[in-house]
């Protein structure tokens, strides 16, 4: 029974890893495409989420995303905990490059939200640097309200969409 549960969890984690890959779909990824953006689609091996050196492990077990309150770029207590864990992992595996994506919810104007996402990404960047992650490894980008993780006209989705995601790649 225990083995079966674990197997289901692993499968679920893999499925999530596939869905949540922030560089799937139309994202252009300068870190793997060198800016060429061949069709805007890139592929990255996520690895086994049970392998602590894998991207899947970082995304699922460490947690790649922190959330923000309305119109704020202040880190929450929960966010600080996640980012400390991220920093420890990133310091342990220094070969990974880091892209921090800042996002906003849809309850703002487009260009303001780009700037707000940039502010959130920069806040995470500053925190990781403060935790010893080399600044040379980190780039930031803002998507404003252009790439919500959940689409609904309700607080539940807006809370999820105000976020910064740390995207690691080899």
């Amino acid at each position: 029974m225990q083995i079966l549960t674990k197997a289901i969890l692993v499968v679920a984690a893999l499925a999530l890893a596939a869905c949540n890959n922030p560089r799937g779909g139309d994202y252009d990824d300068p870190l793997t495409n060198g800016g060429a953006g061949a069709g805007g689609i890139s592929s990255t091996a996520l690895g086994d989420p049970n392998d602590p050196t894998s991207i899947a492990y970082f995304n699922q077990t460490i947690g790649d995303t922190v959330h923000f309150t309305v119109d704020s770029s202040d880190l929450t207590a929960e966010g600080v905990t996640v980012l400390r864990t991220q920093a420890a992992w990133l310091n342990r595996y220094p070969s990974y490059a880091i892209l921090i994506e800042g996002h906003a919810d849809e309850r703002g104007t487009r260009e303001y939200n780009i700037a707000l996402g940039a502010r959130r990404a920069a806040r995470v960047q500053q925190f990781l640097i403060g935790e010893g992650v080399s600044s040379g490894r980190i780039r930031t980008v803002s998507y404003g309200k252009e790439r919500p993780i959940e689409a609904c006209a309700a607080q539940r989705c807006w809370d999820l969409n105000r976020r910064a995601t740390t995207v690691v790649s080899r």
Binding site: D26, Y27, D28, D29, P30, L31, N33, G35, G37, G39, G40, R110, E111, I114, V141, S142, Y143, E146, R147
Partner: peptide
Amino acid sequence: GTSLTFAPRFSPTGDRILFTSYETGFP
């Protein structure tokens, strides 16, 4: 549509436009 774009603006003579694109991955 390969790259995300937003907020185009006309030039005063209408023959050129400015816009923002994520073609490089960054706005």
